[in-house]
Design a protein around this nucleic acid. Sequence first.
DNA 1: CGTTGAACCTGTTTGC
DNA 2: TGCAAACAGGTTCAAC
Length: 292
Amino acid sequence: MPELPEVETLVRGLRRPLVGRRITVVRLGKTDFMDDPAALQRDVPGCRIEEVTRHGKFIVMRLSPSKASSAAAGLLVHLGMTGHLAVASADEPIVNHTHAFFALDDGRELRYTDSRRFGRMGIFGEVALQKVLAPLGHDPLEISRRDFALRLARRRARIKALLLDQRVLRGVGNIYADESLWRARIHPARLAASLTAKQVAALHVAIGEVLKQAIESRGSSISNFRDAQGQPGEYQLRHRAYGREGKPCFRCRSNIRRILVAGRSSFFCPRCQRTPRAPGSAGRSAKKKTKH
DNA sequence: CGTTGAACCTGTTTGC
DNA sequence: TGCAAACAGGTTCAAC
């Protein structure tokens, strides 16, 4: 569920109940997806939550040190595929697969739920925090057209693979990659270096618009994404490509198709998003580079 | 550099 | 109806 718009929606909803609160007790369930569960239990109690922000698909909770010696700087949470955070009264029933409880000084508690445990959670000092976040690429909502073009220039990977690569752009996942490519009328398997300047510009605009609209709709709820208040998002109602295999394209009525690109289901319109040259065919047609 | 497939773990949907 | 296979919004790693 969680790509940039879903994480942003969750973060916005968590700020009010969390910022300024002090964490009093940490209780953990299964910990095999956590970086250092012992440190979490040891260093987090006593800290106050100063800030809740999003960095790509990561949620960063800045903590004030509980003691002078504490190196705790930030609680990092990645939702993986099925992670979720919610603030609940301590007496609310505990939903299945809840693996972390952070009791707050107002009697409520922050709970982390994740059935598949593909998520990630850990308490990090400043240096360790940067080590995790620094490799990530630009925020897709802030990158300039020029920088975007530079990130794609001369890359021979498929455009979809690059959009999903968090070192290139941070926050785009499978849904929004497909939606953006549909908008820009670019086939997911096109090699990035083969895109025209016009196409790169169109894709840059498409990504920004799709993500902004998705945030306005409070994300996509395909099966189970919920915001901090437990409400589903509505952007799934506006999907134009993702999940629409066999259904008519909103522009040309051709049937949306599904193929595998970069190992992921990729939905596109075979008419609006033209198939690239078969791998190896065109570039090699002028073969015989015997002469130079 | 790039691609592919598998792995991590559980739940849900699809197909026979 | 029942059971097995396929599939799922993410990331990482080995092998080629």
